[in-house]
Computed example of a mutant assay.
Amino acid sequence: MSSSLHGSNALCPVARGAALVGDLYILLIVRDLADGSKRFGELEESLGVTARTLTARLRMLETEQIVERVVYPEIPPRVEYSLTIKGRDLLPVIEALRQFGEKWTHE
């Protein structure tokens, strides 16, 4: 988790949660994995993000045990990402953000 939390913020669960998932791409990766496993290329295309950015976010999500990476012993190797139980616990947060965005933001 982010080491930028200081003082009483480090004790606040809202601050800790925001530090963990407060990045736009983190939230969108979790959103995209809500329907099941995806390959790197599928996520990259869906998000319109650079490979470097996606790799960094996926590594962080793996470290935090929100996403798991499965490598299949095939040639060429197939790698898929999916949500862990911890990651699935974020889905109501994603849904609340979706509902808020639909109600209060406009294109």
Rank of each mutant, 00 (worst) to 15 (best):
Glu44Arg: 03
Val67Glu: 01
Asp32Asn: 09
Pro13Gln: 04
Gly101Ser: 15
Asp23Phe: 03
Glu62Asp: 05
Leu28Ala: 04
Gly48Ile: 06
Gly22Pro: 05
Asn9Arg: 15
Ala56Ser: 12
Leu20Gln: 09
Phe40Arg: 06
Gly48Asp: 08
Asp89His: 14
Arg69Cys: 08
Leu11Thr: 14
Val67Pro: 07
Glu102Ala: 13
Glu64Ile: 06
Ser3Thr: 12
Ser82Thr: 13
Ala18Gln: 10
Leu28Arg: 12
Glu42Gly: 00
Cys12His: 11
Phe40Leu: 07
Leu47Gln: 01
Glu68Gly: 08
Leu24Glu: 13
Arg59Glu: 12
Met60Glu: 15
Arg69Asn: 06
Glu62Tyr: 02
Ala34Gln: 10
Leu97Tyr: 15
Arg39His: 03
Glu42Met: 02
His106Cys: 07
Val70Ile: 10
Leu90His: 02
Glu68Arg: 06
Ala15Cys: 11
Arg98Glu: 13
Leu91Gln: 04
Leu43Thr: 04
Asp89Lys: 14
Thr53Trp: 02
Ala51Gln: 11
Asp23Pro: 03
Glu62Arg: 12
Val30Phe: 03
Val93Ser: 13
Ala51Val: 02
Ser82Glu: 12
Val14Lys: 14
Tyr72Lys: 13
Asp35Glu: 14
Ala34Glu: 11
Tyr81Glu: 04
Leu11Trp: 08
Ile29Met: 05
Leu11Arg: 15
Ser2Met: 06
Ala34Arg: 13
Val14Ser: 13
Ser8Ala: 15
Phe40Glu: 03
Ala96Glu: 12
Val21Cys: 10
Ala56Glu: 05
Glu44Leu: 07
Thr53Met: 03
Leu47Asp: 02
Ser46His: 09
Val79Trp: 00
Lys38Pro: 02
Val21His: 07
Ala51Asp: 10
Thr63Trp: 15
Val79Ala: 02
Glu45Ile: 07
Lys103Trp: 03
Arg52Ala: 06
Val67Ile: 07
Leu97His: 11
Ile66Met: 05
Leu5His: 05
Asp35Leu: 13
Gly7His: 06
Asp32Ser: 11
Arg88Ser: 09
Ile94Asn: 03
Leu97Phe: 13
Arg78Cys: 00
Arg57Trp: 03
Ile66Tyr: 02
Asp35Asn: 11
Ser46Lys: 11
Gly101Pro: 07
Cys12Val: 04
Gly36Arg: 07
Glu95Lys: 12
Ser2Val: 10
Arg16Gln: 11
Glu44Ile: 02
Val70Tyr: 10
Pro13Trp: 02
Val71Glu: 13
Glu74Val: 15
Ile94Cys: 01
Glu44Val: 06
Glu42Val: 05
Tyr25Cys: 00
His6Glu: 13
Glu95Ser: 10
Lys103Val: 10
Phe40Lys: 01
Phe100Met: 10
Glu45Trp: 04
Tyr25Gln: 05
Arg57Ile: 06
Asn9Met: 14
Gly48Gln: 07
Ile66Pro: 02
Gln99Thr: 11
Tyr25Glu: 10
Ala19Trp: 03
Ala19Arg: 00
His6Lys: 14
Tyr72Cys: 12
Val71Ala: 12
Arg98Leu: 05
Thr53Ser: 10
Ser8His: 15
